[in-house]
Design a protein around this nucleic acid. Structure first.
Length: 488
RNA sequence: CGGGAUGUAGCUCAGCUUGGUAGAGCGCUGCGUUUGGGACGCAGAAGUCGCAGGUUCAAAUCCUGUCAUCCCGACCA
């Protein structure tokens, strides 16, 4: 098996088996499916057109929902003066180890260092202080699509890179209750996009204090489970209380004529979600992209033999018909590659439906429709569909594929979630990296630290109430029901 | 930040021990035959051997330095 001293190695060999080595498989698929390339910069990723296509699908689905829930997009600067960053103590402490700094401009050394944003609460807070004067200015509901940078020690495509693409919502409210509602609303948007669009089932819950966002009062997350039994945090939503409002002086005149600090929130989802999608659905042949997320839903592969005049015209006609029906379709009429090569390539790229069109089909007046969610030669993988009906039939099949991929993922999550009340079994499951271990928990940081020490697993998120009296790891009174797992 | 490795053609690598014409496979280009699950033949293009010094008649090869990347850990969307 290749150990990628240079990941280009993974570009030429056939991909390794997914079950044998998830990490090898994952990297090979990311490079070979042409989602990303390694950049000549440490820790950074080049998003290739196909990867960008995936990201654009996610952006479209999220952005539509943000607008529907009353948010507007804006853009804030990449750089944050050090003095501003220092104002919220907990926040600084949390991010300090991973901030990259700009110290020179042109040939001049700067008098004040500029941080490359690891997140934008600070710069947004400063502007909100200026914009918010009255309760009539609230709520202020803004989202930004941006890149951020965190000087990560160890990186993996999508899951952890120094620079990454994400969206960050920043809102300000007159009351704590409204802020709490906002945080819950956006977490639900994330759940919906993860499950209904990406086909990645998740658990919603609150983060424990040790896993909380630096400077937040409450952090909520959605957590997915990867095939190797590790959890992946896929979206977060934070109640920042009045912490940032105090640090950056975001105050407003309330209806009762008192001056008050605003209640702020922030929430984010990154291209990490794509990593979750890739690992969740992929198989030994490569990606399997849920149709709702697929940059290309249908690919047409003509099978040339002898004179191709009739075939060329039929393929173009089929392409036009798909296009007219609003499908994201590609016609692969490259002359240089054999059909078999193309089949494998499009399988690798995870396109949900392939339409094969050859003389045999044309003579019978059909196209051969091939589903990516079925194994090669599996019952139902290929079917003949009359040419006159194929375009109308495709949406039904796409929907079936979306459902079947989602159902498989949900079954996996259920089969790898263990509710136990037995202390020994709890530790054993975590050590074996069995999946999500769902137990009554006391909520004490010391208890969580002890579990981490023993198993390298920690709480992923939690909810109330506990389903039993006693905390499973330590035996103290239980307050929460918590998912424990090893994480990415 | 600790431990380990690697920089030679677009990619993966050999060559270095023992200094002496720069190599292979894949990919790429051209022509021909092919094409229903990764086709084949012939011809061809392509490299300041990471960078900087040093030793030597001569350095991909030996020495010194330097830069970069990757992997494994501890920390993190």
């Amino acid at each position: 098996m290749p150990t990628p001293a240079n990941p280009g190695r993974l570009v030429m060999e056939r991909i390794p088996s997914k079950s044998a080595d998830l990490s090898e498989w994952y990297q090979a698929v990311c490079y070979q499916a042409e989602l990303v390339s390694q950049a000549p910069v440490r820790g950074c990723l080049v998003l290739r057109p196909y990867g960008m296509g995936l990201w654009e699908r996610l952006v479209a689905e999220l952005d539509r929902r943000f607008k529907e829930t009353g948010h507007e997009n804006a853009y804030f600067p990449l750089l944050i003066p050090e003095s501003l960053l220092l104002k919220e103590a907990e926040h600084v402490e949390g991010f300090a180890p991973e901030v990259a700094w700009v110290t020179e401009g042109g040939t001049e050394k700067l008098t004040e260092r500029l941080a490359i944003r690891p997140t934008s609460e600070v710069i947004v807070g400063v502007m909100y202080a200026e914009w918010i004067q009255s309760y009539r200015d609230l709520p202020l509901l803004i989202n930004q699509w941006a890149n951020v940078m965190r000087w990560e020690k160890r990186t993996r495509p999508f899951l952890r890179t120094a620079e990454f693409l994400w969206q960050e919502g920043h809102t300000a409210h007159a009351t704590e209750g409204e802020a709490a509602e906002e945080v819950a609303r956006m977490l639900e948007v994330y759940r919906e996009v993860a499950e209904d669009v990406c086909g990645v089932p998740v658990y919603k819950g609150e983060k424990s204090p040790s896993e909380r966002f630096a400077g937040a009062n409450h952090t909520y997350s959605i957590e997915a489970l990867m095939p190797d039994g590790r959890a992946l945090q896929s979206g977060t939503s934070h109640e920042l209380g009045q912490n940032f409002a105090r640090a950056y002086d975001i105050t407003f005149a309330a209806e009762d004529q008192t001056q008050q600090y605003a209640w702020t929130t922030s929430w984010g989802m990154s291209w990490r979600m794509l990593g979750a999608l890739i690992m969740t659905h992929g198989d030994d042949r490569g990606l399997r992209i849920p149709p709702a997320m697929a940059p290309t839903e249908v690919v047409i592969v003509p099978i040339p033999r002898g004179d191709t005049t009739r075939l060329d015209e039929a393929a173009r006609e089929l392409y036009r018909a798909c296009k007219a029906a609003g499908l994201r379709v590609k016609l692969d009429d490259r002359p240089g590659q054999s059909p078999g090569y193309k089949f494998n390539e499009w399988d690798l790229r995870g396109v949900p439906i392939r339409l094969e069109l050859g003389n045999r089909d044309l003579d019978a007046g059909v196209a051969t429709l091939v589903r990516r969610d079925r194994a090669v030669k599996e019952e139902g993988q290929k079917q003949q569909v009359p040419l006159g009906e194929v375009v109308a039939f495709i949406p039904t099949v796409l929907e079936q594929i979306q459902h079947s991929l989602t159902a498989q993922a949900r079954t996996f999550l259920q089969d790898h979630t263990f509710a136990t009340l037995d202390r020994e079994e709890f530790f054993r499951l975590l050590r074996e990296r069995a999946g999500m271990v769902d137990v009554p928990w006391c909520g004490r940081p010391e208890c969580e630290a002890a579990v981490k020490e023993a198993t390298s697993a920690s709480t992923r998120n939690m909810r109330e109430p506990a389903r039993a009296e006693r905390c499973v790891p330590c035996g103290e009174p239980a307050r929460y029901q918590a998912y424990f797992a090893q994480s990415y």
